[in-house]
Design a protein around this nucleic acid. Structure first.
Length: 687
RNA sequence: GGCGGCGUAGCUCAGUUGGUUUAGAGCAGCGGAAUCAUAAUCCGCGUGUCCGGGGUUCGAGUCCCUGCGCCGCUACCA
């Protein structure tokens, strides 16, 4: 079997913030795969880079008071430090803001031009006259033109209406607070539709994508003509200026994937390789690892670009899901939004590598990190089962070394070697959880062997020194076999095993041959047990970070946090605090979660909506609420609110109102209903 | 609403193309042993409606239909 030639990438992290444990799912997943391939004797290189262009970078660097170049260089160093600490080993870590990338972008661009795939079109977009820049949708907020909900995103509101930013009522730029104006600018587009036939074939042939991804693309994009892809941005924009279109820049998603190739180019220059041997060669496999959020860039645009420019198409795009913690999205307020650097202050990287490996499968399911399970799994699998094999036997043979011949072990080593193919197959398919399970099954067979042979008793009898040596030879070889199988996941353990037994682990096939007649070094601890309190400390520290450097909304992070916290004192002035009450007085009010099951306008009334609230089961209340000018009734149905449920019914002109729902704001269109967090149920009391 | 997926022991899950037994493993729990080892290890202990209901079949957790529940994606299009 001749070695494969494999080029692997992870998505380029955006140079706008630190690496966190969500990112690490992908880099650990990829790194394991790369290490596995190398261990198998394949030629495999792992390429990555920082993704450095776009509006968000401009904003962040401006805020930090440095140039974009300084900013991205600083972030890149942080990223590299984090990756290195987690044993993620790139063969090259570049930057999309590199000369190599600029040139390659030119190559791709020319190819697109020559294929007549580029066309110009005018685009109307909101422009911030103060910041002197066009505004992406997420940098505009305003009032929804359909339901008049205020402070909504640029392209959709919380009630589910969609629109373009130009339709917003009272739009505001989140960059400067200025009122944006509509301006027209010429943009360049790629007519992807011309590649429709090719993309149908490539995505649906079953070789390159997970089945569910192929279905997704077919259902969402390929069933109809593909839309033109807006690939340029007018100045000012931090990126590369388009050579034949001065004043326009390539959109960040154009140059980002080309960064994979540019990074390879740097590696080639350093190692005397030819780029075309890797990116224009039938012998090379290209494997991209990405998260599901960027599926369509990598499965439609990117193959289209590669095809047009005559580069290798991806052999496979491996797509993974998101990380959740305790079954929920990572949350800054709950401390589950853990930065890589914060993790490292409290825990060892090997824990996370193993835990993720034990959870990762080949499909794009989300991966849930359960903190109790995390502790239990690392301690019981790694320390209790695997490492224990070495720590309970190594010191008995520190002087004698391993037996000269491999003793009878009842077939354990042979069984372990036979399992190698299946474990390798699981790694190859990214079914790491399966691989980990199989490895732990082997460990579960090894410990009883030691138990049965009782080396601790054998050593008491000098007559049985040979027997003792044999038992430990078996135990250590079984341990080493596991360490080899685990080495893509736990390179440190592999290195430590190499030291202990005086022979570095370099190839997968070493799992087939036991080590004999070699010295054994003094045993040193290989891994600390995870302490639950350290996990907790990490969570707590992540909460503290939240207070200091803050932002609630990820995408618009830097842009919004000033606005988030510079709260006006006007509301308090308008409505000062009232006199103190006792607890007993407070609890007289029975606040309940209620679901709005119907809502209609009271036509004759100026301000009222007639709501029917459900407290669960058959319990219903009619409430007349003065929110007509702030909410469309249709948008309220189904929504959970908080109501004062034991308020005496009040007869009003239009009927009896049996309670009140809680809202803030001065009135008119400025009314803001209170909503419970996810999970609340109708009828629950608010305490 | 559409698409994709999931629903197996307290928890996390395995169950390959339907047929090795009365459906398995790890963790947790209970009982015992051991004391070499990082309070690590070993042995023993599971009356689970394999979500419910139909169907195909000599035979289904495994295939088909249907209902329910959950998750993800995406929606006045699929």
């Amino acid at each position: 079997m001749h070695p494969r030639k494999i080029l692997v990438t992870s998505a380029l992290p955006y140079a706008n913030g630190p690496i966190h444990i969500g990112h690490l799912v992908e880099y650990i997943q990829t790194d394991i795969w790369v290490r596995f391939q190398k261990l198998r004797g394949n030629r495999c290189i792992y390429m990555c880079a920082d993704d450095t262009h776009g509006t968000a970078i401009m904003i962040s660097s401006k805020k930090a008071g440095v140039s974009e170049e300084q900013w991205i260089e600083r972030v890149r160093e942080e990223h590299i430090a984090d990756f290195t600490a987690f044993d993620i080993e790139f063969d090259n870590y570049g930057s999309t803001h590199s000369e190599e990338n600029r040139k390659l972008c030119g190559v791709f661009w020319s190819a697109l031009r020559e294929a007549h795939l580029v066309k110009g079109k005018d685009v109307e977009q909101l422009y911030d006259p103060q910041a002197e820049t066009f505004l992406a949708d997420r940098f505009v907020r305003g009032t929804c033109p359909f339901c008049h909900l205020e402070n909504q995103h640029g392209d959709n509101c919380d009630n589910g209406h969609t629109y373009t930013p130009a339709d917003l009522i009272d739009p505001v730029s989140t960059l400067s607070g200025a009122t944006p104006e509509v301006r027209t600018a010429p943009h360049l587009f790629v007519e992807l539709e011309q590649l429709h036939g090719f993309l149908d074939e490539w995505t649906q042939c079953g070789k390159h994508l997970q089945r569910e991804v192929a279905n997704y693309l077919k259902g969402h994009f390929l069933h109809e003509p593909l839309r033109d892809w807006d690939i340029s941005r007018p100045a000012p924009y931090f990126g590369f200026e388009i050579p034949d279109s001065p004043g326009n820049y390539w959109y960040v998603w154009f140059d980002a994937p080309i960064g994979y190739i540019a990074s390879t180019q740097q590696w080639c220059e350093r190692s005397g390789e030819k780029l075309d041997d890797w990116w224009r060669s039938d012998e090379t496999e290209i494997h991209h690892f990405i998260g599901k959020d960027i599926t369509y860039f990598h499965t439609l645009f990117w193959p289209g670009m590669l095809k047009t420019a005559g580069y290798n198409l991806p052999t496979k795009v491996h797509i993974h899901g998101f990380l959740t913690v305790g079954g929920e999205k990572m949350s800054k307020s709950k401390g589950t939004f853990v930065k890589a650097a914060t993790y490292l202050e409290h825990l060892e990287p090997s824990y996370l590598r193993y835990y993720y490996a034990s959870k990762l499968g080949s499909r794009l399911d989300d991966l849930d990190m359960n903190l109790q399970e995390f502790v239990a799994k690392v301690n019981s699998d790694l320390v209790g089962k695997v490492i224990n094999l070495a720590s309970r036997s190594a010191k008995f043979v520190a002087e004698s070394g391993l037996s000269a011949e491999y003793p009878d072990d009842g077939g354990l080593f042979t069984q372990g070697a036979a399992a190698g193919d299946e474990i390798a197959g699981a790694y190859e398919n990214c079914d790491y959880n399966r691989a980990m399970r199989r490895i732990m099954e082997l460990a579960d067979r090894a410990n009883p062997f030691v138990e049965e042979r009782q080396p601790w008793n054998l050593r008491k009898d000098p007559q049985r020194a040979g027997e003792l040596q044999d038992v430990c030879t078996v135990a250590l070889n079984l341990f080493r076999q596991l360490a080899i199988y685990l080495s893509p996941v736990l390179p440190r353990l592999a290195a430590q095993t190499g030291e202990l037994l005086g022979k570095p682990i370099e190839s997968w096939d070493e799992s087939k041959t036991p080590l004999v007649g070699t010295p054994v070094a003094k045993f040193k601890h290989m891994m600390q047990r995870v302490e639950a309190k350290n996990v907790q400390a990490m969570i707590d520290a992540s909460k503290e970070n939240d207070m200091s450097d803050a932002p609630a909304n990820e995408a618009t992070n830097e842009a919004t946090d000033a606005a988030t916290f510079e709260d006006s004192d006007q509301p308090l002035k308008d409505e000062p605090l009232t006199e103190e009450i006792t607890f007993d007085e407070f609890i007289k009010v029975d606040l309940r979660i209620a679901r709005i099951v119907s809502a209609e306008r009271v036509e004759e009334a100026r301000k009222l909506l007639r709501l029917t609230l459900s407290l669960g089961g058959d319990e219903r209340r009619q409430v007349l609420a003065g929110i007509k000018s702030a909410y469309e009734p249709e948008a309220l149905v189904g929504r959970l609110v908080v109501m004062a449920a034991n308020l005496a019914p009040r007869k009003m002109k239009f009927g009896v109102s049996e309670g009140m729902i809680l809202a803030s704001g001065p009135g008119g269109s400025d009314v803001f209903l209170l909503s419970p967090d996810d999970g609340a149920q109708p009828g629950q009391r608010v305490h």
